[in-house]
Computed example of a mutant assay.
Amino acid sequence: MSVDRTRPGPWRPLPCRGPEAQLFVIGDLHGQAGALGAALDAIGRVPGTGLPRRLVFLGDLIDRGPDSLGAVRLAMGAADQARVDAVTLLPGNHELMLIDGLLDPQEFMGDWLDNGGDEVIREVDPGCTARKLVDLAEIARAAFDPAFLIAMTSGPSFERAGELLLVHAGLAPGVDAGIFLSQGRFGSSGKHWAWIRDPFLDWEFGWGPDRSWVVVHGHTPAVTRRAGPDGFARAADRVETHRRLCLDAGAAFGLPQVGWAEFGPDRYRVGLARQDV
């Protein structure tokens, strides 16, 4: 097994006010713990700038991949490996489906299982014979760190950093951003900050009250096959045309690769970490 620890790409100017921090952001993981480990190693090797170092995960740490529990453990303990001062875990739609299933197994547990949660159950208990949704919910509940479940249930659902908005899926054009982001997380779907695709992806006219924000998101893969860092950056970066940057590198398709980015007050760059098996 070899791990590709590719350095991030070239710096690009931010067309908005950036964070007053050295900010790192990691996209969808979907159980690709090996690729996450490579991303954290790469971030840990980035020299400090004198500003506080912060790391934000955009959600969808779990489901579909081989090691969801390992991905959660690495994310929860990422501060030391990435050499950052603070870590924030935002929820993705897969975490929201899990929480729905734990709160109301009869109504929602099947949705989570059908969307990749079954891989988590097999990871926890390869010989699992449980069939009742309430029993499967208890297996899932026991498998995850309670602090992770609390963060997904009641922690922040988005992050503002200067005029950057960090959120799992995106915003809805023509809808006040504050109202859109205030939507609850339970029983959600469709035009929601954890679920939206179109028309968010095609919008070219800016975001936020002054249309000056740049949205950093995941949820919709920028690539669906193995990519090199340059190819991923070209596919992910829509900052100039759409005021958005997508850090989903296709882990939901079983790809052992994770997108990430570094932001400063006036610039950004994109990286890709990959575990080759």
Rank of each mutant, 00 (worst) to 15 (best):
A143H: 03
A143S: 02
A143F: 01
A143E: 00
A143R: 06
A143M: 01
A143Q: 02
F144A: 06
F144E: 05
F144I: 07
D145H: 11
P146G: 02
P146H: 05
A147W: 13
A147D: 14
L149V: 03
L149C: 07
I150E: 15
I150S: 14
A151W: 06
A151H: 09
M152A: 10
S154E: 13
P156I: 00
P156A: 10
P156Y: 09
S157G: 14
S157P: 11
F158M: 04
F158I: 04
F158T: 04
F158Q: 07
E159A: 05
E159T: 09
E159C: 06
E159M: 05
R160S: 00
R160L: 04
R160H: 05
A161T: 09
A161K: 12
G162Q: 06
E163Y: 03
E163V: 00
L164R: 03
L164K: 03
V167Q: 13
V167W: 12
V167S: 09
H168R: 07
H168G: 01
H168Q: 04
A169Y: 03
G170H: 05
G170R: 08
G170C: 03
G170T: 10
G170L: 02
L171N: 05
L171Q: 05
L171H: 03
A172E: 13
A172M: 04
G174W: 01
V175R: 08
V175Y: 00
D176Y: 06
D176F: 03
A177P: 06
A177K: 05
G178C: 02
G178F: 03
I179Q: 10
I179V: 11
S182L: 06
S182G: 08
S182E: 07
S182D: 11
Q183E: 12
Q183S: 12
G184H: 11
G184E: 10
R185N: 11
R185F: 11
G187N: 14
S188I: 12
S188V: 11
S189P: 14
S189Y: 15
G190T: 12
K191I: 15
K191T: 14
H192S: 15
H192M: 15
W193R: 13
W193T: 12
A194D: 14
A194Q: 15
W195Q: 15
W195N: 14
I196E: 07
I196D: 09
I196W: 10
R197C: 06
R197M: 06
R197Q: 11
D198A: 05
P199H: 08
P199W: 08
P199C: 09
P199I: 08
F200C: 01
L201M: 02
L201P: 00
L201H: 06
L201F: 02
W203G: 00
W203C: 00
E204W: 01
E204H: 04
F205K: 15
G206C: 02
G206A: 04
G206W: 10
G206N: 04
